[in-house]
Design a protein around this nucleic acid. Structure first.
Length: 231
DNA sequence: AACAATCTCAACCGCACCTAG
DNA sequence: GCTAGGTGCGGTTGAGATTGT
């Protein structure tokens, strides 16, 4: 059988979506045959997972997600699928593309290795105050519009700027109250940046905290800003 | 307006791993 | 234990979009 390659057509998309909605996903080679698609099973799987899946999120990577990607990459390296599992709705492909196009570009501009401690230091330290500032701004804006009141989480919303593995002079006081997702994110970041053996609470704690992390598009980010471009 | 340079991202490729026979 | 087929992952490519000159 002659297999099609290249961009998917609308008809192919509809065929795939309809087939999966009635028969479920998996067994991709058989699925491709039974659905009458002239595509490989791999191609169908990729199209579904990266584009057609209903819970796939499109649009800009939020600053929260950006910093999380940075931290998770530091921890796990190019384990894109593993990183993607902690960013609901984001695909490994999307994160991989983001890393290559934005982060690596930034590292090139700084003339340092993207995996080096130097790069991590240069990136994370200046961005953390910026991030917390933006979180604070978003929270303030939400408060001004009569949004439900947000809660702070213990030490992360207090004076204790010695946490999160940052020098005390580089992490400004978090402007309480933080939104739940932002506060949880800060806590998760502590687990990662602290890095288990060197001060943080490690994988188990990190996963626990992250499980409560709301990275939904609604917020606290509304502008889809890019921490790299706002330098 | 035209062209070049750069960026973005969907899609493909090759490899590794898993499982059933 | 070996093999073949299916699946998942990370790396790479290339077309189209965007930006700069």
């Amino acid at each position: 059988m002659d297999l099609r390659r290249g961009p998917w057509t609308l008809d192919e998309d509809l065929t795939l979506v309809n087939y999966i909605s009635t028969n479920g996903e998996g067994r991709w080679n058989a699925l491709a045959r039974c659905a009458g698609l002239k595509r490989t099973g791999k191609s169908c799987r990729l199209r579904w997972l990266n584009y057609l899946r209903p819970d796939v999120r499109r649009g800009n990577i939020t600053p929260e997600e950006q910093l999380l990607i940075l931290e998770l990459h530091r921890r796990w390296g190019n384990r894109w699928s593993k990183i993607a599992r902690h960013l609901p709705g984001r695909t490994d492909n999307e994160i991989k593309n983001y890393w290559r196009t934005r982060v690596q570009k930034h590292a090139r501009q700084l003339r340092c290795d993207v995996n080096s401690e130097q790069f991590r230091h240069v990136m994370v330290q200046p961005w953390t105050p910026r991030l917390t500032e933006r979180i604070g701004g978003a929270v303030a804006a939400a408060a001004g519009t009569g949004a439900p009141s947000a809660v702070g989480i213990g030490r992360f919303g207090t004076d204790d700027s010695s946490t999160a593995g940052f020098p005390s002079n580089s992490l400004p006081r978090l402007p309480p109250p933080l939104s739940p997702s932002a506060a949880v994110f800060e806590q998760a970041k502590f687990c990662v940046v602290g890095g288990g053996a060197d001060g943080g609470c490690g994988d188990e704690c990190f996963n626990q905290v992250l499980a409560g992390c709301d990275l939904s598009p609604e917020g606290p980010w509304e502008d889809g800003g890019d921490i790299w471009l706002s330098h």
